[in-house]
Design a protein around this nucleic acid. Structure first.
Length: 645
RNA sequence: GCCUAUGUAGCUCAGUUGGCCAGAGCAGCUGAUUUGUAAUCAGCCGGUCGGCGGUUCGAAUCCGUCCAUAGGCUCCA
């Protein structure tokens, strides 16, 4: 007999070799029907795998993250089995579970799969699921594994096996399909009740663009049909928040094929919104001791050779511009830092001057690959809310903290809660990717980690994600469809001060090297506005929205009164307009609701007589009658509250 | 850049065995209506069917190519 400890710390005795599934059955049949896998001493196992020693266990169901992973990973096998039956002779790469579902990378040879083929794959998967095939685990030697996949001529599995250690290789067999796999898996395929192939895409083998491109099939499965329906509905809802759709509908920005790919055109309403964001940050920065600078959009190629950017990105940039005379080449600036370095160098500095914080909303141009462009989140011309802080090594930590303060202030004013900080460090095994001394890297990486920990930030560390010149902390936020984007960024740089030979005179009267911090709390105005649109579904906070109120006269008779109200509101700095069309009030309300204007002010006979307005709030309905000044005060108080530090 | 799709009026979308002057709703314009909390009525205007080339007696429809867009891969100073 062995002792099994359940999550509630109760201990039960079972025969040696009992499985998670059998333990579940001993508790209740209902539970047994829902157990997908089992966590044994912290490791997720097949629910059918025998447990031979005392153990802490947790039975995993759909409600557990690991339960979902088991379901989806097994579904990847199920899909592979279906594909192998429908397309005999195909070879398989990897097939993991992901955040929402799973995928499998497949080498189809000369054949191809398109969306039209999804239904028959889904049908086959459902057929196989109904057979309740078991996932049979088998521990094999490396040689056995290699022999099997060699016979199958599957070079991808062979490559994976060759990197594994002998003695820890397992195969899983489902129906006729045998796969190299660590597991765990479902008790049987019957747990999969709803199946949907989501999309097909090309994916390079092992993420290397120099290697073969395989066909990646994305899918998702559920233990209930209803869950699939709900999931698909949720995606449809999320699409309504897509900034590309709302940007068009709300007339914020557009693109023109004649201007070029990835070059956004800000329409008046979008521009007003963006300007307000910029003014907001400018004020915050002024209070935090930043000073403005302005630089041109081009700079000599030599400037970027000096900074090191040319060697790294020169070939992948827009081609240089040439002067009419021979010999001089200029780049469209892909970043502002080299210019700001030259500003620092325009005069000698004392340690008493530092820190110096140079800020600029600088528009930059980068040649992004065409397949990467995406609405306003990934573009070829964009404006960074950039600043460079030049400080002494001793000041680095305080300055870093000061920048985080600004980022937090912005997130609060815009009601962003769902962000994570990502600390990107270098990959010490990939030295060629980075420039600068190990000593400086170590120093700056340590500083960032200390700050993150001291502030108690929710952060994760990513090795190998650092910029080529230094480590960084990025603030990540998800878009409507769950894709993560980098917004704010703070980057430490010991490299440019070196390359530009920047100095300050210390109290010891000797020259010293300053440290540089690149930082952009919004990141880029384009991307930030995109994420903001999705975040608030186009219903911007009152302080930001281009149109705060719309006056709706009941009929032309009240046009004069509407104009009077407008003038009053304008005196209170409220952004309002009048809908003077010859339409019924219901129509005007409907249109204003769709334009997501926060307040609708209805004026007719009643209001004119009592010198008032009827206020309707977008999305909420009638708020009752207000005096105009009373309403204006209410609006201005709300705005003040939203932007308070 | 690569894989797979898509591209018809300002917007959303009909239009497939290739066949008369390519349709609808919304938006816009004109007129009527003078309107009370999510769509008043009528008329009108508006399209090189993404561009170019080809097959065909005939192409929005079939083929090629380029451009743009979407989902992914790679990349992201």
């Amino acid at each position: 007999m062995i002792n099994i400890t359940l999550p509630d710390n109760s201990v039960k005795q079972f025969e040696e070799g009992v499985s998670g599934l059998e333990i579940a059955k001993s508790i209740s049949e209902g539970l047994a029907r829902n157990v997908l896998s089992v966590k044994v001493n912290g490791e997720v196992w097949d629910a059918t795998r025998p447990i031979r020693k005392d153990a802490d266990i947790k039975l995993l169901t759909w409600d557990d993250k690991e339960g979902k992973e088991t379901m989806w990973h097994s579904s990847a096998h199920l899909m592979a089995e279906a594909v192998e039956k429908l397309y005999p002779g195909v070879k398989f790469g990897i097939g993991p579970s992901i955040d929402q579902g799973f995928y499998y990378d497949i080498d189809l040879g000369d054949r191809m799969i398109s969306e039209n083929d999804f239904p028959k794959i889904e049908k086959k998967m459902q057929e196989l699921a109904r057979e309740k095939q078991t996932f049979d685990r088998k521990e094999v030697s490396k040689k056995e594994a290699l022999d099997y996949f060699d016979k199958k001529d599957d070079e991808y599995k062979l490559e994976l096996i060759s990197e594994l250690e002998d003695g820890q290789i397992t195969l899983y067999k489902t129906g006729d399909f045998i796969d190299l796999c660590r597991g765990p898996h479902l008790p049987n395929t019957g747990f999969v009740k709803a199946v949907k192939i989501m999309s097909v895409a090309g994916a390079y083998w092992r993420g290397d663009e120099k290697r073969k491109q395989l066909t990646r099939l994305y899918g998702i499965t559920f233990p209930k049909q209803k869950m699939l329906t709900e999931y698909l509905q949720m995606i449809e809802e999320a699409k309504k928040r897509d900034h590309r759709k709302l940007g068009k509908e709300l007339e914020l920005f557009t693109f023109s094929q004649n201007v070029g790919q990835g070059l956004p055109l800000w329409l008046p309403k979008g521009a007003m919104l963006r300007e307000r964001l910029e003014q907001f940050l400018k004020k915050v920065q002024k209070d935090a001791g930043y000073v403005p600078v302005i630089c041109p959009h081009i700079g000599k190629v030599d400037l970027y050779k000096k900074s090191g950017h040319y060697a790294k990105y020169g070939e992948d940039s827009f081609r240089p511009i040439q002067t009419p005379e021979e010999g001089e080449e200029y780049f469209l600036k892909p970043m502002n830092c080299p210019h700001h370095c030259e500003i620092y160098k325009s005069k000698p500095h004392s340690y008493k001057d530092l820190p110096i914080r140079l800020a600029e909303f600088g528009t930059v141009y980068r040649y992004e690959q065409s397949g990467e462009l995406h609405g306003l989140t990934r573009v070829r011309g964009f404006t960074q809310d950039d600043a460079h802080i030049f400080c002494t090594p001793d000041q680095l930590k305080d300055e870093f903290n000061g920048v985080i303060d600004i980022v937090m202030h912005i997130f609060k004013a815009l009601d962003f809660h769902d962000w994570t900080a990502q600390v990107s460090l270098r990959d010490k095994n990939d030295k060629g990717k980075y420039i600068g001394s190990d000593e400086n890297w170590d120093k700056s990486e340590k500083a960032i980690l200390e700050v993150a920990e001291e502030r108690g930030l929710k952060f994760k560390v990513e090795l190998g994600e650092a910029a080529f010149y230094g480590p960084k902390m990025d603030f990540m936020v998800k878009d409507a469809l769950g894709r993560e984007w980098q917004l704010g960024t703070i980057q430490v740089d010991y490299n440019l001060p070196e390359r530009f030979d920047m100095e300050y005179t210390g109290s010891d009267n000797l020259p010293h090297r300053p440290v540089m911090i690149h930082r952009a709390p919004f990141g880029s105005m384009e991307r930030f506005v995109a994420v903001l649109i999705e975040h608030c579904e186009g219903k911007f906070p009152l302080w930001l929205t281009p149109e705060q109120a719309i006056i709706l006269p009941i009929s032309e008779k009240y046009q004069k009164y509407a104009e009077k109200v407008l003038t009053l509101l304008e005196n209170y700095d409220i952004r309002a307009l009048i809908d003077d069309r010859s339409e019924k009030t219901g129509k005007k309300i409907r249109d204003a609701e769709l334009r997501k204007i926060p307040y609708m002010l209805i004026v007719g006979e009643k209001e004119e007589e009592s010198n008032s307005i009827s206020v309707r709030k977008q999305g909420e309905g009638d708020l009752g009658t207000f005096g105009v000044e009373e309403f204006a005060d209410m609006i201005n108080k709300e705005v003040e509250k939203q932007t308070a530090p």
